[in-house]
């Protein structure tokens, strides 16, 4: 069953220099017990679209969407108060910046315990035990001692794990993890990913994983969405993502992925920059960097199904699809 279903999400921010449109048509769908990975260039709106889902956008931001459902509720209609109650037990966000999530003058264990008590109640003692338990589950050694540490006494990776513990302690049904393992070495990373997978199996937690590490995508994803300049441009099951992506940007993204097993091959960046976000897209946002751009690319391509759970927003793909359909005599 679909746990979260977002269609055509748009976020507008007001700045002194005028409005910016960092999210312009994001589609995100997660089923219970499944993982959707979100990939895309730095600044393409991954974090902001997730903040929008969590109801945590900065003041002055506005949202539009064709659909925004979470567990049968329409997120667009929620009041600030119901939203607050939904966060924690409903959905939890593991922030990209672990340091920013903690209060520097409070002990780690107290901050975790407080998060627990806010949503689950109970005595201070039980909450502290929960805090220690979750520090242990994310692989912090000597969790009873470490719970007494202040944030600056943790290494980068320990802090990131504490952040993960703070989100999981309220046992949300949907976990949104924004680059949760970037500062973690591979063995701790493997441990965290295994923990998330465990929670999915045992409790049917739905997971949105933002990552730029395609190794992590390979290990975790059921489905993958590619964002470019605030728009979902391709979504596909993991196998399709690695075997035969359609969108020229998705292909470029894969081509510049380093892999040590392939030897010391330097990878090539995709030339050019994403478009500025102070205007709405008129055509395909990737057309200035796309080697295959055509005249029609000046018009905005819509997401079109090309296979099972596989949709693409690209004129070229659409044309190829029409040719194939014509050859096989199928109706589009």
């Amino acid at each position: 069953m679909s746990l979260l279903s977002i269609r055509n999400l748009k976020v507008t921010l007001r700045t002194p220099q005028g409005p910016v449109y960092p999210v312009q048509g994001a589609d995100i769908e997660v089923a219970e017990g499944k993982t959707r990975c979100l990939v895309g260039e730095s600044g393409c709106g991954k974090s902001l679209s997730m903040l929008a889902v969590m109801g945590l956008l900065p003041a002055g931001a506005s949202i539009e969407a064709e659909q925004m459902h979470f567990a049968g509720q329409d997120l667009r209609t929620l009041t600030a108060k119901t939203y607050r109650r939904l966060r924690g037990p409903g959905m939890g966000l593991i922030f990209q910046d672990a340091m920013a999530a903690f209060n520097p003058v409070l002990r780690i264990g107290d901050q975790l315990a407080e998060a627990y008590r806010t949503h689950r109640g109970g005595s201070r003692r039980v909450a502290w035990q929960k805090a220690v338990h979750w520090l242990d589950r994310v692989g912090i050694l000597q969790p009873e001692d470490k719970a007494r540490y202040f944030p600056h006494e943790f290494s980068g990776g320990m802090l990131q794990r504490a952040m993960i513990a703070m989100t999981l302690i309220t046992q949300p049904r949907l976990v949104i993890a924004d680059e949760p393992t970037t500062a973690l070495d591979v063995s701790v990373q493997a441990q965290i990913l295994a923990l998330l997978r465990d929670l999915q199996r045992s409790e049917g937690v739905g997971l949105i994983l933002i990552t730029h590490d395609l190794g992590v995508v390979a290990e975790m994803a059921d489905d993958v969405s590619v964002l470019y300049a605030g728009k979902t441009i391709e979504e596909a099951p993991a196998k399709v993502f690695f075997d035969r992506l359609s969108h020229p940007y998705s292909q470029g993204l894969k081509a510049c992925t380093p892999n040590w097993r392939a030897g010391p091959r330097p990878v090539e960046p995709i030339p050019g920059l994403p478009p500025p976000l102070n205007q709405r897209h008129q055509g395909c946002a990737f057309r200035y960097r796309c080697a295959k751009a055509m005249q029609i690319c000046d018009q905005l391509p819509q997401m079109q199904p090309v296979g099972e759970r596989h949709r693409v927003a690209c004129w070229l793909t659409q044309r190829d699809q029409e040719i194939t359909n014509a050859q096989t005599g199928e109706q589009p």
């Binding site: 260039e41 730029h212 510049c256 995709i270």
Partner: peptide
């Protein structure tokens, strides 16, 4: 450089390493 490119997507990562 302490994890300078860990938070960057692959294309920007390649650009910074370059």
């Amino acid at each position: 450089c302490d994890e300078p490119v860990s938070a960057l997507d692959v294309s920007i990562q390649a650009q910074i390493l370059d």
